[in-house]
Amino acid sequence: METMFTPFASFGGGLLIGLGAVLLMLGLGRILGATGIMSGLVFADSRDEFSWRAAMVVGMILAPGLIFLVTGAMPELSVPVSPWMIVIGGVIVGFGASLGSGCTSGHGVCGLSRLSVRSIVAVPTFMFTAAITVYLIRHVFGA
């Protein structure tokens, strides 16, 4: 399934993602990592740990609605894989991202920007395994 090359929208979206990360550092002094925010909500051991993460998640969830109000259309989202792939992939994502202490936002955006050695190892590692996985699924197993 082809998708359109969107360098300007993607770069602009990237700037906003970065702005979100910078604002969280400015306001709360925290790294914006989606895995940490989500697992912090699931395993929160204090009200203070829970509440700012919950507020952030509410803000994130409001975003597609805001885009709908402004542009009249929801952001594009097409899922070309089966529900089983979503479940299996999701469990693997949750397991791996929590074991590796981060995902695309925490290691990718914030970690690289901090020039963290751990993130400089993590990001090429997950980009490589994701690319190999997509190659195997699409071109070897032919799904």
Partner: peptide
């Protein structure tokens, strides 16, 4: 843990096409 966790995360991302930071707003 860092290397294995990141490698495993990438595999899941390549299977499902979502990562946590994209799925929460989605």
């Amino acid at each position: 843990r860092l290397v294995a966790g990141s490698a495993i995360f990438g595999i899941g991302w390549g299977i499902a096409g979502f990562c946590p930071g994209a799925a929460i707003p989605a």
